[in-house]
Design a protein around this nucleic acid. Structure first.
Length: 807
RNA sequence: GCCGGAGUGACGGAAUUGGUAGACGUGCAGCACUCAAAAUGCUGUGUCCUCUGGGCGUGUGGGUUCGAGUCCCACCUCCGGCACCA
């Protein structure tokens, strides 16, 4: 008989809530477990992809609670930013209203999932009591020189009408809408994450509980490279420019230099030069290209400036080119070109007929083109004969002695551009005064409230710039008239520290109490999508390090253990609102119940992998739960007899399952956890059909419910109560397995002849090697296979296998 | 191009990290119950053959080993990340 999931699920959701089972406070006597899932943006459409994520988190919460930890499972809302604003633009409803409605809807969906969250600690980033501390953080950074405003070529999305961070440009297109990104020169706020580049890189080695691939992605993103910087003199002038190279050892092979089109020296060099018109045209052309076109590796183009540079190593004069394959944003925006040892320089030199000098001896079978490998240095004066490493250290020392350059480390990471020309975000707490310049808003005037407006559509400048009551203010310094900064902050600012706020969500005196953070931090388990491997996780690490440096955070790394789950896929695409292939959980809650839904999400495949949504899945796991229900509620005729070997085997099976389930949960192998329980139930069903013994059945069923509790909590609770095992399953202790029972007494041993399975026999688990061999040779089937053969060797691995080698 | 990860039945996926390949589930087929269907239960389900038995089988080709899905070498395909970063 099927159980009434609607009534049961509602009943237990009420009880967990009214008895505040998952609301926690700091308890120094209990070990803590801080369990956080990446807070969602309130789209209003919780779908089966989200449900997968929150089922995992909920399973951990319930499991660790049963293991005796003081578990904090908070939940909040990433409610500022483009997704929420774009949704609001579509519907015409104010973002605040729509976001708050959607939060209500999603909370209800979480409730119906049976998700255990400590709702007392709920937070939302659009709440002034939250974003006030974004502003406070901004001021702390500003005062330490880590927030600065500067005019820079920035990524501009023409569709979303906003600037994007480097991290938000994917293949030259806007991360959100896919529109090609343009370059614009704008005055913008940056956070100086590059000051932390070395620490962000080095500390990755300590994150042993992070997926290796996320660590690798962050390493690549930070992109540390070692090389040298040195100054190059322009021939016949006082001007000079600096270049960066990872191959200073090839300096004698420099046959030309290249400046990026945006390099400030270009303007100086071409003044009154013969080539001025040509160079000017080229620079203008390069500026018109979008990021996509600029980055696509087409044929290289460039133009000779008519000027020459002097190689500091040997005084040779080489031509200076302007070419857009050199990027202003990396290194110094200028390079020494060594076509003999660099593919790009080779291509350029070949096209424009420039000299090529090899400074590293290629192998004899080298077919041509640039040689990037190691080898003895040639054509290089005092470096000749040295290998690459020695040549590098020698030339760097020489550059330093001569005072023209130095060994240096270069990062690919750029400073974090946080300004956004959008309405729905946290206002930047700065004031521009004609007399005093940029003045921070005094802390006692925080928060700078986001004004309520009717026009929030983006139009190229921040919508706030049109709100006079907001813009016009008084300078806190000289009390003269002044204007507020009208850009808002990147949403990733909000999400870079919210996990600290959960520890102390209502504090109106400070961002959070360091003592509370000391208890809860670091996050013991962080769960989210791999799409945040770079953006969010890097920013959160940066901000945590900063908060540590100013004495607020007890830790330098926020997330001790990270789990990145795969996406839920349907019709070949990630399930998402923008793809229009949303599968909502509600019909499944209604028809099969949250427990069946949860179980399918766990069972669908390895949590790290993408999983394909399958409509037949939830009915399947419901079938399993009905089986458990039937087993737990049907009156059975127990045999009136003492326990025997069959009962021992049943109990032994349960303990083996317990061991496997416990270990699988710890390792996030949830799919096999579910299949183990299914196997146990199948066996228990067979057992119950035979002359079952009451006490054994009860022991096993109790264990089954305890194990099922974190996965399908509602039905497990109901059966727990019905069978009179106790009151509230959620706070019961996770059982311990008995090692004596885990061991099997009788096992099947495989007998092979020349590596092929020829027979199987039942043997005692404690069998010795010689007994195993004896048993194998005693088999009639084996005897038949050995007819006419000479046994040369017998390999025994008791009690699992015996392999007889014969020829 | 560079750096990761993965290729196992009709499908999702298991396999003490070198020891029974295909657990568990879905689907499919047959049987039972039913007037019938659904639901439920039972049985079967990698492939081929001369079928109480046996051959072959984990992307391809080689290798190591008593024994390879698992280790080594070469290759193919797919997915993810980075990429004119000097």
């Amino acid at each position: 008989m099927d159980y009434n999931h609607r009534a049961i699920e509602a009943k237990w959701q009420d009880r967990w809530e009214s008895e505040r089972v998952f609301n926690v406070t700091e308890d120094p006597d209990k070990p803590k477990f801080y369990n956080v899932s990446m807070y969602p943006y309130p789209s209003g459409e919780l779908h089966v992809g989200h449900v997968r994520n929150y089922t995992y988190i909920d399973l951990i919460t319930r499991f660790q609670t049963m293991r005796g930890y003081n578990v904090l499972p908070p939940m909040g809302w990433d409610s500022f930013g483009l997704p929420a604003e774009n949704a609001a633009i579509q519907t015409g409803v104010h973002p605040r209203i729509s976001v708050e409605n959607q939060i209500g809807r999603m909370k209800e969906q979480f409730r119906r999932l049976g998700a255990a969250f400590d709702w007392d600690r709920e937070l939302a980033s659009h709440d002034p009591s939250y974003y006030r501390w974004d502003q406070w953080l901004f001021l702390e950074l500003y005062e330490r020189g880590l927030a600065y405003k500067k005019e820079a070529p920035v990524n501009w999305c023409p569709k979303d009408h906003t600037v994007l961070a480097n991290e938000q440009v994917i293949d030259g297109a806007c991360e959100r809408c896919g529109t090609g990104v343009e370059k614009r020169n704008l005055s913008q706020w940056f956070w100086k994450i590059t000051d932390y580049a070395d620490r962000l890189l080095d500390d990755l080695d300590d994150l042993t509980e992070w997926p290796e691939r996320v660590v690798t992605m962050q390493k690549n993103w930070i992109g540390r490279s070692e090389g040298a910087r040195f100054r190059i003199q322009v021939a016949g002038s006082e001007d000079s420019f600096e270049v960066y190279t990872t191959r200073p050892d090839t300096i004698f092979g420099m046959t030309f230099c290249v400046l990026a089109p945006e390099h400030p020296l270009v303007e100086v060099l071409m003044k009154d030069a013969e080539a001025e018109a040509k160079v000017r045209a080229y620079v203008a052309e390069a500026g018109r290209f979008s990021e996509i076109e600029r980055m696509s590796e087409g044929e290289k183009t460039g133009v000779f400036t008519g000027r020459h540079a002097i190689n500091p190593a040997n005084g040779v004069e080489v031509p200076i080119y302007v070419a857009d394959y050199v990027l202003m944003g990396y290194g110094t925006g200028a390079i020494m070109a060594v076509p003999g040892q660099d593919d790009r320089d080779w291509e350029f030199a070949t096209k424009y007929g420039l000299d090529i000098i090899r400074t590293v001896q290629p192998p004899s079978d080298w077919s041509g083109k640039a040689y990037l490998g190691d080898g003895p240095t040639i054509n290089s004066g005092f470096l000749d004969g040295l290998d690459m490493a020695d040549a590098k250290t020698t030339i760097i020392k020489w550059l330093e002695d001569e005072g023209v350059g130095e060994g240096t480390i270069q990062y690919r990471l750029r400073d974090w551009l946080i300004s956004r020309q959008r309405y729905w975000g946290c206002p930047i707490p700065m004031i521009d005064c004609a007399e005093c310049g940029l003045v921070p808003v005094p802390r006692d005037q925080l928060p700078v409230l986001l004004p309520e407006v009717d026009q929030w559509q983006p139009e190229g400048r921040s919508p706030l710039a049109g709100v006079e009551s907001f813009v016009n203010t008084m300078c806190p310094n000289c009390y003269g008239p002044a204007q507020r900064e009208t850009d808002t902050m990147d949403t990733f600012v909000d999400s870079s520290w919210y996990f600290f706020r959960y520890a102390d969500p209502k504090n109106d005196q400070a961002m959070f109490d360091p003592e509370k953070a000391r208890y809860w931090m670091p996050v013991d388990q962080y769960v989210g999508g791999v799409e945040h491997a770079i953006l969010h996780l890097l920013y959160a690490r940066f901000v945590t390090k900063f908060l540590h440096d100013i004495g607020l955070s007890p830790v330098e790394e926020p997330f001790a253990r990270l789990f990145t789950q795969g996406m839920m896929v349907k019709d070949g695409a990630k399930i998402s609102k923008s793809k229009g292939n949303i599968v909502a959980p509600d019909p499944y809650y209604a028809d099969y119940g949250a427990d069946a839904m949860r179980l399918f999400e766990l069972f669908v495949g390895p949590p790290t992998d993408d999983a394909v949504w399958n409509d037949a899945g939830v009915p399947g796991t419901k079938r399993f739960l009905d089986k458990v229900w039937k087993l737990g509620t049907t009156e059975m005729a127990f045999g009136n007899r003492p326990p025997d070997a069959t009962d021992r085997e049943m109990l032994s099976e349960a303990h083996r399952t317990l061991k496997k389930v416990t270990e699988d949960i710890e390792q996030f192998h949830f799919n096999t956890t579910v299949s183990s329980l299914m196997s146990l139930v199948n066996l228990l069903q067979d057992y119950a059909a035979g002359p079952a013994e009451r006490e054994t059945f009860d022991k096993v069923f109790r264990m089954l419910l305890l194990m099922l509790s974190p996965m399908a909590p509602h039905v497990a609770h109901e059966l727990w109560e019905l069978r009179g095992y106790g009151d509230l399953l959620a706070t019961e202790r996770w059982p311990e397995w008995d090692d004596k029972l885990v061991v099997q007494q009788r096992v099947t041993m495989v007998i092979q002849v020349n590596g092929k399975v020829r027979d199987r026999v039942e043997v005692d688990a404690g069998i010795t090697a010689s007994q195993a061999e004896e048993a194998a040779l005693a088999s009639e089937k084996i005897d038949a296979w050995l007819q006419g053969l000479q046994v040369t060797k017998v390999i025994t691995r008791p009690p699992s296998i015996v392999n007889i080698v014969a020829g």
